[in-house]
Amino acid sequence: MGLRDADRLAEQLKTNPGATTVYMRSGAHMLPDTPAHNIIGELKGTEFPDQYITVGGHLDSWDPAEGAQDDGAGCVQSIEVLRALKAIGYKPRHTIRVVLFANEENGGRGGRKYAEAAKDAGEKHLLGLESDNGGFTPRAFTLSLSEDKLAAIQPWISLLKPYGVYELEHGGGGSDVNPMARQLNATVGELRPDSQRYFEYHHARNDVLENVNKRELEMGAVNMAALIYLVDKYGL
């Protein structure tokens, strides 16, 4: 049952409540915990290898479909960030780490464990950036910066605008990177693509690869790579 079905049911209940009945059978049940794994790859920093910029999406998806928008798109974009930087021969100052987080849909444990392990290892994280809003046309980035620091990086918009991003705004990250803010005192943020179509696919049967636009996906990835390049080169 998707959001459109819920809207139809709500309308029927509103217009003819006495004639509408619902029967639902669920086979859902809890199983014991089992090991899962975050998948991590990195491009080592040349000046500050022990300082990290993390970018990621989450591997697991909701049951009815493939999870192509939620969150296969974010995983592909995160991998593409590293691939693109390597392809142009870029040598980052800080270590850039791609994380494909496990278990976001069932409690966000992959993100929490990542932050916990990084804290135990004494790692310093400059930025945790996430893509978990679908592979649509990029529009903005949110960043958990103070107003003065956010104002200082507004000139970056002129470099991002040709590829769709026209705003750097105050806000948090997604559920996978937010634990980094709490445990590591890192700046966190996320890509904010055009949101008009997201809930046509979110946790629904049609969240499949065929419904991801390749060009929009690539535009999101190139903006993420550009932002990470700017943070690596100039800091926050």
Rank of each mutant, 00 (worst) to 15 (best):
L184Q: 11
D132M: 01
G110L: 03
A87V: 09
L209Y: 12
G41K: 07
T21Y: 07
E47N: 14
L127E: 05
L168Y: 08
Q196Y: 01
E47W: 07
R8V: 15
H37M: 09
R197D: 15
A152T: 01
T20K: 14
Y23L: 13
V99D: 00
Y52A: 05
D194M: 07
H203M: 04
E123L: 13
R83T: 00
F199I: 10
G72M: 09
T15H: 02
Q51T: 13
R197F: 09
E11Q: 14
A186M: 03
W156K: 11
A225W: 07
Y52R: 10
K113R: 11
L9Q: 06
T187H: 13
L13D: 10
G164P: 08
A84W: 11
H58S: 05
A87G: 08
H203R: 14
Y163M: 15
T46R: 15
E147K: 01
R4S: 11
W156E: 10
L236G: 02
S195I: 01
G57N: 03
F141G: 09
G57L: 04
T20R: 14
A117E: 15
R109D: 10
G135N: 11
G27W: 03
G108Q: 12
S78K: 01
Y234E: 06
V165I: 14
D60A: 02
G122M: 06
G74M: 06
N206P: 10
W62T: 12
G189D: 08
E123I: 12
E147S: 13
A151Q: 09
V76C: 09
G164K: 04
Y166A: 14
R4N: 12
E200T: 13
Y52C: 04
P49I: 14
L43P: 03
R205M: 08
I39W: 03
L82T: 08
E200N: 14
A36F: 02
R205C: 03
K44H: 13
P17F: 05
R25F: 06
M219Y: 06
Y90G: 07
Y234A: 02
A118P: 00
S61G: 15
G72C: 10
A181H: 13
K149I: 01
Q196G: 07
A102K: 04
L43A: 03
S78N: 08
